[in-house]
Design a protein around this nucleic acid. Structure first.
Length: 621
RNA sequence: GUGCCCGUAGCUCAACUGGAUAGAGCGCUGCCCUCCGAAGGCAGAGGUUGCAGGUUCGACUCCUGCCGGGCACGCCA
């Protein structure tokens, strides 16, 4: 009786590696046997693609090499014997699993209490990973772009957690600097004048104040110059002159506010704190509704680095890492055409300075050996600069030697149907909370129509999950670096490559147990023997077994769309199985139990995958 | 001007990091519910992977040059 096999491709890899070493001892070091699932059933279940590249090194013909490997490999317990026909094309070795071995593998991934956990292997050397996400700004509500900066890194964080790593989420909130000082100044004025009450400040109100504060600090110097150059008359010149003077005053006021904030002036800090609380309260609520794991404890705003920036630049200067340039301080690093600016000529700091401080803290205090930034792709140059500067400064150096992995998980822009960045009909940036509301409302209409028999409360819960799943799946399912078009109709289509389709597949895996119970046929399947007979069963089994490696590949590439594509494939394989293999009315008890177990396992992999992506699930819909 | 990214079916996107005849969904055509949820399944049509070279057993993938589009480029964050 063969030992339980967790994952055929892992077993095959070991076996083929051994065979290659045995056949060609002259090759130094371990060789990747290049085992992949076969794309087409007629090429078997798996294939070994190592012969072609080895042939080159060895100066032999690829088919000869393949034959030598095939002759040495020991597959008796897992696969059908290899024959001449197994070697195909330029040297592919096609492998067909034995039915019992395939079933044993599926049972192994479905055995609680062993190392097998749906086929996901926890990393033996868990690492501490910081995931930078969300990135909201004070006095601004979340917009479409924040779907991406929240959902993508949250999915990455969940994936790493699923693999056993220690993940620390960090929301690098824009809560400091001159723009924040401007709105703080403005709010203090409003409060003082009694035009607004502290208890009733809303984020909408803050957003309006933010805009007007920025506008009034904006000096129209170009306008003034134009007026003078073209001699538009003393009246216009006086008006523009007055604007510039007022703006200069306001600007100076904001600078003073920033200084008072930095020196912890109680009244100023109290107002700043009010802005902070109102903003974060609203944003964290939106994160919660998005089913994203972002809470107050993950917040590490720019303000928390404020005290470190001066000493940090001094440190860089003292060690010759940074140098003065035209009055400013810059870090030049190899491979960087543009130096990284860390202090302005007026003595102010920049966001690169804060990001450097953040890397230092994350590596030295939080113990991160990997830092992942879920930030807009337009900032890739910025991160290249900051990463290079951090490495040069030694801020990314790990205690045991080596350097922390610094990665920018960049994402593209959310576009409207016209191909330009997504806006509302009126041309404003669309608020995220409104978009979530509309997605849920649209889902609700469909649920009311199709699931009229369910209770009102159930329908509301289902619509919530379906709407959120639709938005999140849409965001996660394509290559994150590309732009995508935001389209309610497509994401809520409930068919094809969508979140709702996945939820539907999950619901079907579960509803069959309710139906089976009604007929008194739901017993005895737990721990029963899985039998793989029908092609649809085989296809489902092979798909199930890929789960663990897909999760690993997401952790490595930081590309959640791979998991999305996999889950759709799994749902499709289940759909075919469900269509072609009677479960409750299977020909015999053994088959029925085996199929019930496959339904249960499929449901748990779907649910686990969705949870790993951060997509909410439902039991029925 | 310099640098980065992207051009794949009518549309929206994949392609396991160089593997076999480039796959899904939408839309289109035709089937499958007295039978476990048809929000489903099956089949068909649809491609010179922007263009031209190169590297090699093998290229959507790597290299070079064009064409077309997007983005970013030290004193904003």
């Amino acid at each position: 009786m063969p030992q339980p096999i967790e994952d055929p491709s892992r077993i095959l890899r070991t076996r083929f590696e051994a065979a290659i070493t045995a056949a060609f001892p002259e090759i130094p070091g371990p060789v990747d046997p290049v085992i992949t699932p076969s794309r087409q059933p007629r090429f078997g279940d798996f294939q070994c693609n190592a012969a072609m590249s080895l042939a080159k090194q060895l100066g032999k013909s690829p088919r000869e090499v393949a034959a030598a490997i095939a002759a040495r490999v020991d597959l008796a317990d897992v696969a059908e014997p290899l024959t001449d026909a197994s070697i195909a094309g330029p040297g592919f070795i096609n492998i067909t699993l034995r039915g019992e071995a395939l079933a044993a593998s599926v049972m192994a991934m479905d055995s609680p209490g062993t190392l097998s956990d749906l086929g996901v292997t926890r990393d033996e050397n868990p690492t501490t990973v910081v995931v930078d996400l969300c990135g909201v700004n004070l006095a601004k509500s979340m917009h479409v772009g924040h779907v991406r900066s929240t959902v993508i890194p949250d999915a990455i964080a969940r994936t790493l957690e699923r693999l056993g790593h220690r993940v620390i989420r960090q929301s690098h909130v824009g809560d400091w600097g001159l723009p924040i000082a401007m709105v703080t100044t403005r709010l203090m004025d409003e409060l003082q004048a009694g035009r607004v009450l502290a208890e009733s400040v809303t984020l909408d109100r803050l957003e309006r104040l933010y805009r007007s504060a920025q506008a009034e600090c904006e000096r129209d110097l170009k306008g003034l110059e134009a007026v003078r150059r073209h001699g538009l008359g003393p009246k216009i010149e006086a008006e523009v002159q007055a604007q510039v003077e007022t703006a200069t005053e306001k600007f100076a006021g904001a600078r003073e506010t920033l200084l008072r904030l930095q020196s912890h002036d109680p009244a100023t800090v109290r107002t700043w704190r009010l802005i902070y609380d109102v903003t974060m309260d609203a944003c964290l609520k939106t994160c919660a509704r998005l089913h994203a794991n972002v809470t107050a404890e993950h917040t590490a705003g720019e303000s928390s680095y404020a005290e470190e920036l001066g000493p940090l630049v001094e440190d860089l200067l003292a060690r010759g890492i940074a140098e003065p340039d035209q009055g400013a301080i810059v870090v030049r690093a190899e491979g960087l055409e543009v130096p990284c600016l860390v202090r302005k000529s007026d003595g102010g700091f920049l966001y690169a300075t804060t990001d450097l401080a953040a890397i230092r803290r994350r590596v030295r205090s939080l113990g991160a050996s990997r830092i992942i930034y879920g930030v807009d792709i337009r900032q890739s140059l910025h991160f290249r600069q900051v990463f290079a500067a951090a490495v040069k400064a030694g801020y990314a150096a790990l205690p045991g030697g080596g350097v922390a992995r610094l990665e920018h998980a960049a994402f593209g822009t959310v576009l409207g149907s016209d191909g330009t960045p997504f806006k509302t009909r009126s041309g404003d940036t669309a608020k995220l909370s409104d978009l979530l509301e509309e997605a849920v409302a649209r889902a609700r209409r469909v649920v009311d129509e199709r699931s009229a028999s369910l209770h009102e409360e159930q329908r509301a819960l289902i619509a919530e999950a379906v709407g959120i799943a639709a938005i999140k799946y849409m965001d996660l399912s394509t290559d994150r670096t590309k732009d995508y078009v935001f389209d309610f109709d497509r994401m809520l289509a409930f068919e094809g490559n969508t979140g709702p389709y996945l939820l539907y597949a999950l619901v079907r895996t579960r509803s069959i147990f309710r139906k089976a119970a009604e007929e008194g046929k739901d017993g005895g399947w737990r721990g029963s023997t899985i039998v793989i007979g029908e092609p649809a069963e085989k296809s489902l089994a092979l798909t199930l077994l890929r789960y663990g490696q897909v999760v690993e590949s997401v952790a490595e590439t930081l590309e959640p769309h791979r998991l999305c594509a996999y889950l759709i494939e799994l749902a499709a394989a289940f759909g075919l199985f469900f269509d072609q293999c009677k479960v409750i009315h299977a020909p015999d008890d053994t088959t029925r139990r085996s199929r019930l177990r496959l339904c249960d396992l499929t449901g748990r992999v779907l649910a686990d995958g969705l949870e790993t992506l951060g997509i909410p699930t439902v039991d029925r819909m």
